[in-house]
C-alpha cells in the first residue's frame, strides 16, 4: 500500500514570496510543492504526498490558535497516514509553526509526524518533548541531508518499527529516558568514570542532574478557629480493598474518598496500599498515617471549624515526579475550589 502523506510548509518554500508575503493565510493544495518534490523522490512508491498545506509565518505567529485549527482541518481533509512539516532550518517563526502544527497533528489526529530544524531554532525547545524533530543545518542548503533523514524516520513510524537513539536516527533529543544495554557493567563504568575524573580527563555523566521546582510555603493560617482543614496523604491509606486499585509503587492515580461522619480511620474500614514501608503499624491503626481520630477531637473542641469531607490519597513510592505533580495540581485546585484553608499532608 502507498501511505498518504501531507506536507506543511510556509509561504517562502511554497514560492508565494518572502517576508512581504508572510501574512498569507492557510491554504491547501493537492500534491507536492517546493521541497515536497524532494520528499516525493525520497519516498518512491512507498508513500505519496497527497497534499500540501501552506501558511505564512507572520500569519501563523499572529493567529496561532486559529491558524492551527484551520491547518489541522485542511490536513485531516486529505485523510493522511502521516504528516511532515518543514524542514524549517534556523527560521524561528517557521520552526515555531512547524512545531505547533506537528504537536497538534500528533495530539489531535494521532498520526505520525516529523519535522526538521536547526538545534538553535526556538521551535526546538518549545516542541521537542512531544515530537520528532530531525536535526538539520541552519539554512536551506542543508535540504539534501534533511530530506532523506526525515523521510526515513517518518517511514519507520508509519511501519511502526522501533525508533532508535537520537544519534542513530538523526532527531533532536526529546528528553526521554530509555533503557539500553551498555558494553560494560555499571560498576566498571563507575570506576572508569572515577579514574577519568581524578585524572582531570573529560567524562560524561550518564544522568545529568535535573533542576528541581521549589514551592514557597503559603502564609500561616491567622484565624484557626474558622479554618477548614483537609487531609491529604502519600501514605497509601485507602478504604479496605483498595477500590481504585492504587498501585503499591509507581502510582498512576490518587483516590478521593468521603470521610463525612467518619470518626476514626479504623482498621476495619481502612488499610494501606503502599508497598514501600512496613505496613504492619499502619494497618493496625490507619489513624497513624491518616489521623482522622485526632482531627475529629480537635474539630469537636472547636480548635478549627471543620474537617473537609473528603481525603485524597496516593502512594508515594517510586512514583514519578511528573505523576506526583499532576496529582498535586488537581488536588490543590479542588481544595481551593471547595474553600479549604489548609492541608495536613502526611507522608511515610
Amino acid at each position: 500500500m502507498t501511505y498518504r502523506i501531507v506536507h506543511y510548509i510556509n509561504q517562502f518554500f511554497a514560492g508565494i514570496g518572502g517576508e512581504e508575503k508572510a501574512g498569507t493565510g492557510p491554504e491547501s493544495k493537492d500534491g507536492a510543492i517546493g521541497p515536497g518534490m524532494a520528499f516525493k523522490a525520497a519516498f518512491g512508491s512507498e508513500a505519496e504526498i497527497v497534499g500540501t498545506v501552506i501558511c505564512g509565518d507572520g500569519y501563523f505567529a499572529e493567529n496561532m490558535d486559529g491558524a492551527s485549527e484551520k491547518i489541522l482541518k485542511m490536513i485531516s481533509d486529505f485523510s493522511p497516514d502521516a504528516v511532515i512539516a518543514g524542514p524549517a532550518f534556523n527560521a524561528g517563526r517557521y520552526g515555531t509553526a512547524c512545531g505547533a502544527v506537528s504537536e497538534a497533528v500528533s495530539k489531535k489526529l494521532g498520526i505520525p509526524v516529523v519535522t526538521g530544524m536547526y538545534p538553535e531554532n526556538p521551535g526546538v525547545d518549545m516542541y521537542r518533548k512531544g515530537i520528532y524533530i530531525v536535526e538539520t543545518s541552519d539554512s536551506a542548503r542543508g535540504i539534501k541531508d534533511a530530506v532523506p533523514a526525515m523521510a526515513k524516520l517518518i517511514m519507520k513510524l508509519l511501519r511502526a518499527e522501533p525508533v532508535g537513539s537520537p544519534a542513530d536516527e538523526g532527531y533532536i533529543e526529546r528528553g526521554v529516558r530509555v533503557n539500553c544495554f551498555q558494553d560494560k557493567i555499571g560498576a566498571e563504568r563507575a570506576v572508569d568514570m572515577l579514574v577519568k575524573k581524578l585524572k582531570g580527563e573529560e567524562f560524561r555523566t550518564e544522568y545529568p542532574m535535573p533542576v528541581f521546582d521549589r514551592v514557597a510555603p503559603a502564609e500561616p493560617i491567622k484565624d484557626m478557629k474558622n479554618a477548614v482543614i483537609a487531609l491529604v496523604t502519600s501514605g497509601g491509606i485507602v478504604p479496605k480493598g483498595n477500590p481504585d486499585h492504587i498501585e503499591a509503587s509507581s502510582a498512576t492515580k490518587y483516590g478521593t474518598y468521603s470521610i463525612a461522619g467518619v470518626q476514626s480511620a479504623d482498621e476495619v474500614a481502612y488499610a494501606t496500599a503502599h508497598g514501600g514501608y512496613d505496613p504492619t503499624y499502619a494497618n493496625t491503626d490507619p489513624n497513624r498515617v491518616l489521623p482522622i481520630d485526632v482531627l475529629r477531637e480537635m474539630e469537636k473542641n472547636g480548635e478549627f471549624k471543620k474537617l473537609y469531607d473528603y481525603f485524597f490519597t496516593t502512594v508515594g513510592n517510586g512514583t514519578p515526579v511528573a505523576n506526583a505533580k499532576k496529582f498535586g495540581t488537581e488536588i490543590g485546585a479542588r481544595l481551593k475550589k471547595d474553600g479549604v484553608d489548609a492541608v495536613i499532608l502526611t507522608s511515610t
Binding site: 528528553g175 539500553c180 551498555q182 555499571g186 550518564e206
Partner: peptide, 12 residues
C-alpha cells in the same frame, strides 16, 4: 545499584 548488570539508560 552496585552496577551488577550492563543495563543503563540514555536520554533519547
Amino acid at each position: 545499584e552496585l552496577g551488577f548488570n550492563k543495563l543503563g539508560a540514555e536520554t533519547w
